[in-house]
């Protein structure tokens, strides 16, 4: 089974040359994330410049662009993980369901409970498979063993790894292969039932076969979750995403339906990147 979205042709949409302010068809889902005039500095480096983007429910949005274009920084701003880097400053706003998450009074823990994240390198904890999945529910106060058992099973099934690990739930997660580890990390993320899943180049450390499985998984997850995925791999973006945003030097150059971006880009720089002329 292959991804459907790239095959399915979408209604032609009018292209507004101004990045980010692309007009949605009426039928689209509700906006979950809305970024307005976001600027971000690492000490002196201006890493994100006037970013305007919005993401809708139950869609897969891919963020593409060459290394150092700010795509990873941007996705980490969406759950404020970027703050772990000392010396970060931001202006502008990002609203999540109408609330500005960059506001100091906004509780990051609450945000990160609703917005899960999958990282570049699989990063399971050096604990058992079971404990990895139960970690999230446990820190949020769920201690009932029966409930936890159920969550663990459901999450592992959700990430399509249950059959591979059900007989060794108590073994260390480091015994799994890289691809399995990454699916475990996705399962761990599902355990707290987030509304949005951020994926920061989730397949860059994996072999092609594992990559394919993750891509299939993303297609499944889309039915329940909104997914924002940063990727280095343009074919991947084309295969799995509904919409694509192209970043260059900290700016959003173009944001549109994936089909349009890949077949009929509005900006010559997007075309250059997609046709492999740089990056």
């Amino acid at each position: 089974m292959m991804s459907q979205s790239s095959v399915k042709s979408k209604r032609p949409v009018k292209i507004n040359p101004e990045a980010g302010s692309f007009k949605e068809p009426e039928t689209a889902g509700k906006v979950v994330y809305d970024t307005k005039e976001l600027n971000l500095w690492y000490s002196e480096t201006h890493a994100l410049k006037d970013v305007n983007l919005s993401f809708r429910e139950k869609e897969v949005t891919a963020i593409i662009g060459p290394s150092g274009c700010g795509k990873s920084t941007y996705i980490k701003t969406l759950n404020r993980m970027v703050e772990l880097v000392p010396g970060v400053r931001t202006t502008g706003e990002i609203t999540y369901k109408g609330k500005n998450i960059l506001d100091r009074s906004f509780k990051v823990e609450e945000l990160r409970t609703k917005v899960g994240m999958v990282f570049q390198k699989p990063n399971p904890f050096p604990k058992s498979i079971y404990e990895n999945i139960a970690y999230g529910p446990k820190i949020h106060g769920i201690r009932n063993k029966k409930v936890l058992d159920e969550i663990v099973e459901r999450s592992l099934r959700g990430a399509y790894i249950w059959d591979e690990v059900k007989d060794r739930l108590n073994e260390n997660a480091y015994g799994l292969s890289g691809g399995q580890q990454q699916r475990l990390c996705i399962a761990r993320c599902l355990a707290i039932e987030p509304e949005v899943i951020l994926m920061d180049e989730p397949t860059s450390a994996l072999d092609p076969k594992s990559t394919l499985r993750i891509e299939e998984l993303v297609q499944e997850l889309k039915k329940e979750y909104s997914i924002i995925i940063v990727t280095h791999n343009m074919q991947q973006a084309a295969r799995i995403s509904d919409k694509t945003a192209f970043f260059l030097n900290g700016e959003v150059i173009e944001f549109n339906e994936t089909n349009t971006i890949f077949t009929n880009p509005a900006d010559s720089r997007t075309e250059d990147y997609i046709s492999g002329r740089f990056g």
């Binding site: 106060g141 769920i142 355990a191 329940e224």
Partner: peptide, 27 residues
């Protein structure tokens, strides 16, 4: 995928609600 043994089941345990509930008692 060879053995897709099921979609996420929607059932009794609602994690989102449980987390919400616990949050209020986490002072």
């Amino acid at each position: 995928m060879p053995t897709n043994s099921g979609k996420p089941k929607q059932n009794a345990v609602n994690v989102r609600e449980m987390i919400e509930e616990k949050r209020s008692s986490r002072n």
